[in-house]
Design a protein around this nucleic acid. Structure first.
Length: 994
RNA sequence: GGGCGGUUAGCUCAGCUGGUAGAGCAUCUCGUUUACACCGAGAGGGUCAGCGGUUCGAACCCGUUACCGCCCACCA
């Protein structure tokens, strides 16, 4: 006897440990097997498991377990991402609560804090993945930043090598360009990290006075746009949503074809406040239809203006520092110095107003760029940064998808991918942060201004590197030949990087381990202080995790990966970059297929977000949580704490009892069953409960098997069974396993889950189990043992088919059922059953039996016959169907049939039903109201007539009979024949009563 | 402004190659038997968003409209 139900809280950790300890997650590295590999989308070390991870990893684990059971040599490569900005932010915040500031403690100390923090809580997410059942090979766990304590770890070396090679190939360059600057982090960020937010804003229409007494006639228009007159103006009106940037204007631009301003091109205006003379230029950029048609140009603080300024040959004037405060430049009034943008704006507008130069203010919605992490307004800023020239790489990456080397599922995502690749911009890869791969470029003062790059010293952050040698010649050799020789395009130093530092002889002596230092040559180099964009190293993930740049057996065997499983929101961030870098460094795509899965939304269809308070923690569904705990969790992270009562109320209403401990299997099955292609998942807790019940159902069926001695037989041959019932269930098993296999191969997880569910619950539990009861408790030993063996075999197949979805409960049952079976389910072979096992004749018998039982149940229920009332079953025919006798033992409990006999006509007061053209009567004199039975029959007939009418309409249409394929027409003929026959029988039955 | 997706039972969603509209939950009725009440049996419930087209035949293909959601985009 098994326990009453499966106890996930107890069993799941135990089973997981058993798998992991046994090495079941590790690839065999057996070259005779087909390789199958997936690299995990590395979760942020800062992260905790959320619903997105849960779907993502459930799907990967389903595929991995499926392919592992199919006998492939499987690698699921796990690891975590250092997540530069996110992690630095988290640790900085934590230190702030201890009263410590990052900048005060310095780089080295800060980083040691981050590493400490990573050691402490960086393992959370991987532990949580284990709770889900993820069968990754943890012995190969990697971290995008590498492991400084493990000399064999190549993750950091891979990044350096990638950077150096791309530099040498001209794909990485350093440039002073306008970049998206996040004033909170005081770092550049990439285009992708900028979000646009629509806010209520204004356009300020400013008057710029024309210099040298120039004036012009400005047309006055009526409402319809007709010119009604002219007004003499000695100023130009420009509209802007950023008035404070006027401090950095270098010109005003008008369209060359704009006749209003033709005469003004080449003239100058006096820029108010700073009293600078700037020209009026002609450029294609301004749209005469918009605003006044004249545009103020601030090249240093606007992407469009930058281009206009460049065309006009103007030097951009930066007016903001890295905190987005006004720089103390000459010409800018003292009282603006150091003001943050918002306050500066107010003051600038006030200046214009006082000077009578504020034409008017227009209210409207404007698009504001904000940092996706910091949430602050992004300022375009002119800085020195490292860039990747993405154009060629993007073209290669697009070709690879175009020619099918990499395939998207669902295929629509190719469009999104192509669109982005087609519009790709240079990728800014430097970040002014500390947590990350420090850029492997050094700026040297004495010997050369060129930076050189190193394959070593990744973690030598603040200190200069000092090269020492006894001779100058040797020094050159050490410093330049040893390292890859990076040439700077213009020799400009990094932001904040040391340059032209006088070598410190004492330090050199210390480093060179030469107490005397006499006759020593040395140079001192400073490393670029910036780090690389996290996604630069994530882009290498598919091969860096496998040991690249070394040519390892893993790389040989598991690159390219079989499939990448991810949500669409990181197609650009990650998928695109892996494609580009994989193709560049490996000469091949990083994965053959990309499966893009749905996003998990809350039950209202909104994105889950801590700041809104609508998240559901997957672990709470696994372990359970009471309502108080849930409310506390949801209100804790709110962006707007005032909303707490509202969130609490909504939470209590939605989940008055919190969550039960559904277990990982139920959650996984739900996610799989809801993961239809190309659609979002609105998570339903009710469905999780339903699939938990499914687990219990399975458990209970196994218990039934145990009670009836249904032990798996190692030598069981499904082709050898005699009973139709067993032939039928074996046939159904074959069909289902083929269906589940087909669906999994096509990433149709919901269909695969459905097919397995229906088979296990409806076919096996509801029918086979019930139909087998009389045999299992019967006298015929041969039939009994055959059925016991068949039962056990089918249950084993069910456990296998369900294992990828519900690994824990299936493994537990597998162990409990098969005493002495030493192989774990995770490593058994996937059902690969021959079609020859499908026996249609046996199936037809059982189909008939199911229909008969169904009809009897239905008519009895319709007429409110209590199940306790058994009745005979009369077959109205000349000869008794032998199947009635054969299945009498099943008909008795399932259809409440007392006994079976032959009759000429239905006795008065009998229910009648038709199966396969034969009328059956159930005499229930006195228990049924004849009027009601008449009405019931009449209704049945009516339904059939409607069907017949529909079919007739088709068949009488010559277009249909002529043009439709013959088999389709035949089906309709057959259906009609069956309906007509049934109708006749029912009419006879009705006649009997009347 | 460009692109993508959605609209099917009260709710949440399936519906693969165009050929008899399905499931779970909820609702209603009834619960006997050697697994299971986290259960069993049965029932009701549909203008497949609207309009037009292609087709012998459309939930499905094409066009269009409406509403909802998402992504991308430099409109001063």
């Amino acid at each position: 006897m098994l326990d009453k139900t499966f106890n996930p809280t107890e069993a799941e950790p135990r089973l997981y440990k058993k798998w992991e300890d046994s090495g079941a997650f590790q690839p065999k590295m057996d070259t005779s097997l087909e390789a199958y590999s997936i690299v995990i989308p590395p979760p942020n070390v800062t992260g905790n498991l959320h619903m997105g991870h849960a779907v993502n990893n459930t799907i990967q684990d389903i595929l991995i377990r499926f392919e592992r059971m199919r006998g492939k040599d499987v690698l699921w490569q796990p690891g975590a991402d250092h997540a530069g900005i996110a992690t630095q932010m988290v640790v900085e915040r934590k230190l702030a609560t201890e009263g410590k500031a990052r900048k005060e403690m310095g780089r080295e100390e800060f980083l040691s804090h981050v590493w400490d923090w990573k050691k402490e809580s960086g393992g959370n997410i991987t532990q949580q993945l284990r709770r889900l059942g993820a069968s990754c090979d943890w012995s190969r766990e990697k971290f995008t930043l590498g492991n400084p304590e493990d000399p064999s770890d190549k993750m950091a070396e891979a990044v350096t090598k990638a950077f150096v090679e791309m530099y040498n190939d001209g794909l990485i360059y350093r440039d002073k360009r306008l970049v998206n600057w996040d004033p909170h982090f005081q770092s550049a960020i990439s285009d992708l990290e900028v979000e646009t937010k629509t806010v209520n804003g204004h356009y300020w229409h400013l008057r710029y006075p024309l210099a040298d007494g120039v004036s012009y006639a400005h047309p006055i228009m009526d409402e319809d746009g007709n010119v009604t007159g002219h007004e003499t103006r000695d100023y130009l009106v420009v509209a802007t949503s950023r008035p404070e940037t006027m401090l950095g204007d270098t010109c005003v631009a008008v369209h060359p074809d704009d006749e209003r301003y033709t005469d003004l091109v080449g003239k100058e205006i006096i820029l108010p406040i700073v009293n600078r003379r700037i020209p009026i230029i002609a450029d294609e950029y301004p749209d005469p239809e918009k605003g006044s048609g004249a545009v103020k140009i601030t090249p240093a603080h606007d992407f469009n203006d930058y281009e206009v300024g460049k065309r006009a040959g103007h030097t951009p004037i930066s007016i903001l520092n890295e905190k987005a405060e006004i720089l103390p430049l000459e010409g800018i009034p003292q009282d603006l110095h150091g003001l943050p943008v918002k306050r500066a704006r107010k003051n600038v507008v006030a200046y214009f107003e006082r000077a009578g130069l504020l034409n008017h203010v227009e209210d409207l919605q404007i698009e504001q760029p904000v940092g996706d992490r910091s949430g602050v307004i992004i300022e375009p800023l002119l800085t020195d940064q490292w860039f990747v020239d993405t154009e060629k790489m993007a073209a290669d990456a697009m070709d690879a998808v175009e020619d099918g080397r990499t395939e998207f599922f669902p295929a629509n995502w190719k469009k999104t991918y192509d669109h982005w690749m087609n519009n790709i911009q240079p990728w800014c890869i430097s970040r002014q942060l500390w947590w990350g791969h420090q850029i492997p470029a050094w700026y040297g003062p004495s010997i050369s201004k060129d930076p050189i790059s190193s394959m070593n010293h990744y973690y030598d952050f603040d200190n200069p590197i000092i090269f020492c040698a006894a001779t100058e010649e040797e020094l050159h050799k050490n410093a330049f030949e040893y390292y890859s020789n990076i040439k700077m395009p213009d020799g400009t130093p990094a932001i904040g990087g040391g340059t032209n530092i006088v070598p410190d002889r004492a330090t050199a002596i210390k480093y060179c381990n030469d107490p005397d230092g006499a006759g020593m040559y040395y140079i001192q180099l400073y490393r670029d202080p910036d780090v690389l964009d996290t996604w630069f190293s994530s882009g290498l993930w598919p091969f860096s995790t496998m040991g690249w740049p070394e040519q390892t057996p893993e790389l040989e065997r598991f690159y390219p990966g079989s499939v990448l499983v991810t949500a669409f929101d990181i197609i650009f961030f990650w998928v695109a970059r892996m494609m580009m870098q994989g193709l560049h460094f490996m000469g091949d795509v990083p994965f053959k297929q990309v499966y893009i899965h749905a996003l998990v939304l809350d039950e209202q269809g909104k994105k889950m977000s801590k700041s809104i308070g609508n998240t559901i923690d997957p672990l709470d569904l696994i372990d359970g949580i009471d309502i108080e705990g849930l409310v506390e969790k949801r209100t804790r992270g709110l962006k707007n704490p005032d909303k707490a009562p509202q969130v609490a109320k909504a939470t209590r209403k939605a989940y008055p009892d919190g969550f039960e401990a559904f277990g990982a299997d139920a959650l996984r099955f739900t996610l799989a069953a809801m993961a239809g292609m190309g659609r979002d998942i609105k998570l339903s807790v009710e469905r999780i409960a339903g699939y938990r019940n499914f687990g219990t159902k399975l458990w209970s069926a196994a218990n039934f098997g145990q009670m009836n001695a249904c032990q798996p037989q190692a030598d069981f041959d499904p082709a050898s069974v005699d009973l139709a019932l067993n032939k039928w269930i074996i046939s159904e098993t074959v069909k289902t396993s083929a269906e589940v296999t087909r669906c999994l191969e096509a990433y149709r997880f919901n269909d695969a889950a459905d097919a397995a569910y229906k088979f296990a619950w409806d076919t096996f539990c509801a029918w086979y189990l019930e139909l087998s009861k009389p045999i299992l408790s019967g006298e015929d030993a041969g039939q009994k043992s055959e059925t016991q063996a068949t039962f056990a075999w089918v249950l084993d197949q069910i456990l296998k088919l369900l294992h990828p979805f519900m690994p824990f409960i299936t493994e537990e049952l597998w162990g409990k059922i098969g005493e002495g079976r030493d192989e774990m389910l995770i490593l058994t072979a996937w059902p690969d059953l021959s079609d020859s096992l499908i026996q249609e004749a046996a199936s037809a018998d059982i189909d008939w039996l199911q229909t008969l039982i169904g009809n009897i149940r239905s008519v009895r229920a319709d007429m409110n016959i209590p199940p306790s009332k058994k009745a005979p079953l009369l077959m109205l025919a000349d000869k008794l169907d032998p199947r009635l006798a054969a299945y009498a033992e099943q008909l008795s409990p399932m259809a409440r049939v007392e006994h079976v006999e032959l009759a000429d006509t239905a006795p008065r007061g009998a229910l009648q039903t038709v199966v396969d053209g034969v009328t059956y009567a159930i005499p229930l004199e006195g228990l049924i109201d004849l009027g009601e039975e008449r009405a019931r029959l009449a209704k049945e007939i009516e339904k059939i007539e409607a069907e017949i009418a529909k079919i007739d309409k088709k068949l009488s249409n010559p277009n249909f009979t002529d043009k439709a394929p013959p088999n389709v027409v035949q089906i309709q003929h057959d259906r009609k024949t069956a309906f007509v026959e049934e109708k006749l029988k029912l009419e006879e039955a009705l006649g009997d009563i009347a």
